[in-house]
Amino acid sequence: MTTAVENYVELLESQLLERAAAGGGLSQDREGEYVEQFDLLWRGMSPQEQDAVEVYLTSELAAPEDLAFIDVEVAEGHVPRRAA
């Protein structure tokens, strides 16, 4: 991955995490700032890098079919947890 592609993906993840920290949404101004930054990065990339971003963002992660966890309530303190 080139630096430009990495920067784009990092910005996307930064936006995702900032939205989460804010409870799911950002102000219009803040979203607008992100749009400007995305636009700036996108315009600075070669067509190959733009393709690489799309491929990267749609590539599937390897993951188990089933986590094999159930949620359990532990009697002591009634702390809900996961257990295999």
């Binding site: 996307l12 993840e13 995702l16 995490l17 939205r19 989460a20 409870g23 799911g24 599937e60 992660l61 390897a62 993951a63 188990p64 079919e65 089933d66 986590l67 966890f69």
Partner: peptide
């Protein structure tokens, strides 16, 4: 962070929902 294969296809959206 963990999720099953079906959710991993859209892992960022899933992560966002969990974090929120």
């Amino acid at each position: 962070l963990g999720m099953d294969a079906a959710l991993a296809k859209t892992w960022r959206a899933e992560l966002a929902a969990l974090l929120v």
